[in-house]
Amino acid sequence: MSQYLFQQLINGLALGSLYALVAIGFSMIYGIVRLINFAHGDLVMIGAFATLGMLFYGTPWPVTLLVVLLVGALAGAMIQTVVFRPMLGAPQVTGFIASLAVSITIQNSALMLLSGQPRNFLFPEAMRQRVSLGGVSASLTDLVIIGLTLTLIAILFVIVYRTRLGRAMRATAENLMAARLMGIGVNRTIVAAFAIGSALAAVAGLFWGGKFGQIDPLLGSVPGLKAFIACVIGGVGSIGGAMLGGYILGLAEVLFVGLLPQAYAGYRDTFVFSLLILILLIKPSGLFVRHVEERA
């Protein structure tokens, strides 16, 4: 394999990991309360700035990772309790509009508190070197992102499919009313889903800063929208689908830029959103989901 192609592949997988982390939370939340949470992307920003704050105080990286997870979880749980819980049972569009409002509130509060100036964000020297693997080389940052993402997703799958909480979440997603009748603490379960999903998005923020080297208060909107696309690719509401969708989108985006002539690079987002519309047309339930509900 040529170095160029390998580099693109790793790059795509790293980007895909970021999308997958955001998309999984998006999908969990949709699966449980049928809410397209537009504010989800902004947790990426919150995670990135939380990391920056920790770096400022020189916290060791493993601790930073845990704290960022915690900050994301708290933020997600808070948003759910304050804004979305009173709207449980309202029409879908109401929740969607409210989440737009939450997103705008978070972004502009961050602008107010942190100013719009982009800030540099650097992983430690050791992380930024390149490793060579049998003739080809890749940046350690990308490899760490891919590795940690897969670990986190594995932990998530254990939680969802092997614990009581996971079973409660799956039951609530299946049928909220029935789950409540079976004695499941539905409100608690929903908060847990928001917290877990948001924690993953916040970690994506940590990785985002490390990969791109710069963060600003509006950085969350693009990953938020792309995570939605990743969910649509994989089938909204399915965790595995969201993960695969994230990787497919990341790879497709990088290959689009990497393999086509330079002149087309600017059309990257145009390409991604055209892809969204195409998939919604051909297979609106997503590529990996057989269950169909009303979308089209």
């Binding site: 569009v93 929208l225 969204l276 609106p284 979308r295």
Partner: peptide
């Protein structure tokens, strides 16, 4: 052909 928030996101994409 899309409904609800799917239309919303598709038009955001636009």
């Amino acid at each position: 052909r899309l409904r609800g928030h799917y239309l919303a996101v598709a038009t955001l994409g636009l």
